[in-house]
Design a protein around this nucleic acid. Structure first.
Length: 700
RNA sequence: GCGUCCGUAGCUCAGCUGGAUAGAGCGUCGGCCUCCGAAGCCGAAGGCCAAAGGUUCGAAUCCUUUCGGACGCACCA
C-alpha cells in the first residue's frame, strides 16, 4: 500500500508546478481546494509568483498545466483564472487516502511531521458551592474536545481540572448549612450533593437579603434617607435616564425608527443625539406629562434602589451578622479550625461527588485535579519570590503589588494586587501556585487554560509574572479564551438564580431526543429508547457548544440547542447511522468482492473523489484547530463530511433511480469500490465525532 | 477615559496569513418517501461584507478614522 497522503500529493504537485516553471522551490505558488469537484481535486494558485516575476498568472498556470499533462500522476490539468486545476489519477488518489486511513488507524488525523510535545490543558474549573451550569458546560466540552484534538495531532496531553474549593463563597454555603439546615445531607434530602450545596448557597443569599430588608425597614431607614438626601441630584439624574431609556424602548417596540440604540445611552452623548430628533424629544415630554403618577413612582423606586445598593455595601461590611459570620469562618478556615475544616471537607465531598456524576454522564475526564486549597500556600511563596526579585513591591498597608505596564502610551500602568495586606491570597496567588507546581511536575512545552474571555487580563498578568520567574515559559502558556454563554434575555446571573443548571438541562434534552426516538420506533424497548435518546441529546448539546468558533458568544436558546435538524450533532449521528445501515445490508447480502484498485478506482465519480478529499482533510483540520486552539474547525469538518456523504447516497438521476447504489449496485466492482469508500467515511466520521467527545450510534 | 474582541443574508454564524461568481444552518417559497433510514435530499428567493478614507493589478480580509456592540480595567473568583 502507498505511503502517500493528501499532503504528500500536494507537495508533489507544488514541486512539479515549480519545476514546470524552472523554479527550484514552489515559493509563490499555493495549493488550495479546487472550486468544485467538477473543476478538479486541487488547484495551484499562481498569483503570488506572478507578482514576483511580473508575469500574468494565467500564463504561468497554462505552463504548469501543459507540463502536468504528460505526468501520469495527473488525469487532468487545466488553467483558469490564474489557477491550474488538477485532477489526480484516480488510483493514486484513492490509494493515498485509503492508505493513510488504514495505516494510521486509531491515530488517523495526526501530523507525522509534528514532534510530540508535552501539553497541559486545564478546563472545567468547578466551584464547590454549586452545581455545574451551562457556562461550565461550554468550558468543559470545549476543553475536553481541545485536549482530544491536541492529542490527535500527536502530542502528549495531560488534562487538568482546577477545583475552586476555598474562599468566601464556599463559606456562605457552610454558614447557611450550619444555621438553617444542619442535619441535612444528600442522604436525608435525596438530593445530588452539588444540588444540595447549591441550594444552600441560594438560601444564604435569600437570608442575607431578608436580613438587609429588616434592617433597612428599621435601624437602617435613617441611613438610607440620609443617602437619598445627600445624593439627590445624581439619583434623580439616574432615574430620569432610566425613564428615557424606557420611553425609547417603547418607541422602538412600537416600530418607530431610531437612529441609535436605546439599550445603552452614554449620558454625555445623549443631548446631541436627542437634539437631532426634536419630535422625539417633544414626544418624550408629552409621554412624561401623560403619566405623572407612574413617573413619580418610577423615580422613587429607582432612587430607593440606588440608595439601598449604596448602603448595602456598608451593611455587609459592618452590620450584617451573616456576612460577619462568613468572614469569621473564612478566617477560621485559614487557621485550620477543626470544626470549620470538618464541615468544609464534608460539604466539598458532597459537591464533588455530585459533579463527578455530571462529568460521567458527559463522558469527560481528567488526568489530574488540582485543589486551590492545596496550591494557595505555594502561591504565597511564589509571591515572596517575586517580591525578593524586585518584580513586585509592598505598598503602604503591606499588600504585594505588581505594576503592569500599559500597552500604549495612553494606557496607564495598572497595579495588580498579588497578596492582600492581611497576607491572605487572592485569585492570582492561587494560579501562580498551581502553574509553578505544574511546571515543576511536568516541565510542559505548552500550557493551555480554557477560561472565559472576561479573564483575559488576568491570564496576561499571570503569564507575564511566571515569565519573570521562568524566563521563556510565559510564551508557552496560552489562554483559550471563549465567549460567554448568554440566555435569550441576557446575561446569566448566578446570584439571582438566573442560570440553566447542567443536569436539569441535560435531562431535558435527553428526554426530548428520547421521545423522538420513541415516535419513530414505537416497538423499541424503553431501555434502548433511553440509551439512544441520551446519546442523541448529548450529541445535540455538545455539537451546539462546539459549532461556533470560540470567540463567539453563544446565546443559549434552549429551542436551538434542542434542534436536531440541519447543522447539528444528531444530523451527523444520523449520517453515520445510515452509512452503517447500508454496510450492514451489504454484509447481509454476502459482503463485497475484493477491490482491485488499479482498475476500479477509475470508476470514481467526481462526487466520490470529493468525498475522499473531504476525508483526507482531517489532518489539516486538526492542524488548524491546534493552531487556533479551537476545536470548532473539527466540528465544521465533521458536518461537511456528513453533509457530503448524505448528499452522495441519496443522489438520484432524472429517472428517480439512485445514482450511487451500493447494496443494489449491479456491477460488483463498482459496488466494492463504494463499500470501501463508505468504510473510509464511516471511520472518519467516527473519529471526528470522537474528537468532539460525541459518542455515536449504529441505529437511531 | 484606557485596553481587548466584534459588526457579513430576516435570524444565528463561517470565510479574515489579500486572489476564481462571498458560504452554511434556521426561517420563507417550491419539489422529492411503490427506490440502501424524510433527524434526509434537490431547487429558489434573500448580501453596496456597519460607514468613510487609504495601501494594492486585486480588499469582507491589511492600515486609519467614525459609528454601533460585548468584555475587562476589585485587597471578587
Amino acid at each position: 500500500m502507498s505511503t502517500e497522503n493528501l499532503r504528500s500529493l500536494e507537495r508533489h504537485l507544488l514541486a512539479a508546478a515549480a519545476a514546470a516553471l524552472q523554479r527550484n522551490d514552489p515559493s509563490g505558488l499555493r495549493a488550495s481546494d479546487a472550486q468544485s469537484p467538477a473543476a478538479g481535486d486541487l488547484a495551484v494558485g499562481c498569483h503570488g509568483l506572478a507578482k514576483e516575476l511580473k508575469r500574468d498568472p494565467q500564463s504561468l498556470a497554462q505552463t504548469i498545466a501543459a507540463a502536468l499533462a504528460n505526468d501520469p500522476r495527473y488525469a487532468a490539468a487545466t488553467a483558469e483564472n490564474g489557477y491550474c486545476n488538477v485532477r489526480f489519477a484516480r488510483p493514486l488518489l484513492f490509494a493515498a487516502v485509503a492508505g493513510e486511513v488504514v495505516r494510521e488507524g486509531e491515530r488517523f488525523g495526526r501530523d507525522p511531521d509534528e514532534a510530540p510535545a508535552k501539553w497541559l490543558i486545564e478546563y472545567s474549573g468547578p466551584n464547590t458551592n454549586k452545581p455545574l451550569h451551562i457556562g461550565h458546560l461550554r468550558n468543559t466540552i470545549l476543553g475536553f474536545a481541545m485536549s482530544n484534538v491536541v492529542r490527535a495531532h500527536g502530542h502528549d496531553v495531560t488534562r487538568y481540572n482546577i477545583v475552586n474549593d476555598r474562599g468566601i463563597h464556599i463559606c456562605k454555603s457552610m454558614v447557611a448549612w450550619k444555621r438553617f439546615a444542619e442535619g441535612q445531607t444528600p442522604e436525608t434530602t435525596g438530593e445530588k450533593g452539588d444540588h444540595l450545596v447549591g441550594r444552600l448557597y441560594s438560601l444564604f443569599a435569600k437570608k442575607a437579603t431578608e436580613e438587609f430588608e429588616q434592617w433597612a425597614a428599621g435601624p437602617g431607614a435613617a441611613e438610607i434617607d440620609a443617602y437619598l438626601a445627600q445624593h439627590r441630584a445624581s439619583i434623580e439624574a439616574g432615574a430620569d435616564l432610566n425613564l428615557r431609556k424606557r420611553f425609547l424602548q417603547e418607541q422602538e417596540k412600537a416600530g418607530r425608527k431610531l437612529d441609535f440604540k436605546p439599550a445603552k445611552i452614554k449620558p454625555q452623548l445623549y443631548p446631541e443625539k436627542m437634539a437631532a430628533d426634536v419630535p422625539l424629544e417633544r414626544d418624550y415630554a408629552a409621554w412624561l406629562a401623560a403619566r405623572p403618577g407612574e413617573v413619580a413612582e418610577a423615580r422613587r423606586a429607582d432612587g430607593l434602589k440606588r440608595a439601598q445598593a449604596a448602603v448595602a455595601r456598608r451593611f455587609e461590611a459592618e452590620v450584617s451578622q451573616l456576612h460577619a459570620q462568613t468572614r469569621e469562618w473564612l478566617r477560621r478556615w485559614e487557621e485550620s479550625d477543626p470544626e470549620v475544616r470538618a464541615i468544609w471537607r464534608r460539604m466539598n465531598d458532597w459537591v464533588l461527588a455530585g459533579i463527578e456524576k455530571t462529568y460521567a454522564r458527559l463522558g469527560v475526564s481528567f488526568d489530574h485535579v488540582d485543589y486551590e486549597s492545596e496550591v494557595y500556600l505555594l502561591g504565597k511563596e511564589i509571591v515572596g519570590e517575586l517580591l525578593a526579585k524586585g518584580v513586585a513591591r509592598k505598598n503602604g498597608d503591606g499588600a504585594v503589588i505588581f505594576e503592569q505596564p500599559g500597552k500604549t502610551p495612553a494606557d496607564p500602568p495598572q497595579e495588580k494586587v498579588l497578596l492582600r495586606g492581611d497576607g491572605t491570597s487572592v485569585y492570582i496567588t492561587q494560579d501562580l501556585g498551581s502553574l509553578m507546581r505544574r511546571h515543576r511536575r511536568h516541565d510542559p512545552a505548552q500550557v493551555v487554560y480554557v477560561v472565559g474571555s472576561e479573564q483575559e487580563l488576568h491570564f496576561e498578568t499571570l503569564f507575564v509574572l511566571i515569565d519573570r520567574l521562568l524566563p521563556g515559559f510565559g510564551a508557552r502558556c496560552h489562554h483559550l479564551s471563549y465567549g460567554m454563554v448568554e440566555l435569550p434575555h441576557g446575561k446569566m446571573k448566578s446570584r439571582e438564580g438566573e442560570i440553566i443548571e447542567a443536569d436539569g438541562f441535560l435531562d431535558t434534552v435527553e428526554e426530548a431526543a428520547g421521545s423522538q426516538v420513541r415516535a419513530r420506533s414505537p416497538e423499541l424497548p424503553d431501555a434502548e429508547v433511553k440509551r439512544r435518546g441520551s446519546r442523541i441529546g448529548l450529541a445535540a448539546v455538545k455539537y451546539h457548544l462546539l459549532k461556533f468558533s470560540k470567540r463567539s458568544t453563544v446565546k443559549f436558546d434552549v429551542d436551538e440547542a434542542l434542534d436536531m435538524n440541519g447543522r447539528t450533532g444528531p444530523y451527523c449521528l444520523y449520517s453515520l447511522a445510515r452509512i452503517r445501515s447500508i454496510l450492514r445490508k451489504v454484509e447481509a447480502a454476502g459482503g463485497a468482492t475484493k477491490l482491485d484498485l488499479a482498475v476500479e478506482a477509475e470508476r470514481l465519480t467526481p462526487a466520490e473523489a470529493g468525498l475522499l478529499l473531504a476525508v483526507a482533510r482531517l489532518p489539516e483540520t486538526i492542524r488548524a484547530a491546534v493552531r487556533d486552539l479551537d476545536p470548532y474547525h473539527v466540528a465544521d469538518w465533521v458536518y461537511r463530511l456528513a453533509k457530503e456523504v448524505n448528499s452522495w447516497y441519496t443522489a438520484s438521476g432524472e429517472d428517480g433511480k439512485p445514482l450511487h447504489p451500493v447494496v443494489h449496485c449491479s456491477d460488483p466492482a463498482t459496488r466494492a469500490l463504494r463499500v470501501t469508500l463508505l468504510r473510509l467515511v464511516e471511520a472518519a466520521l467516527e473519529r471526528g465525532l470522537g474528537l468532539l467527545g460525541i459518542a455515536t450510534l449504529d441505529e437511531m
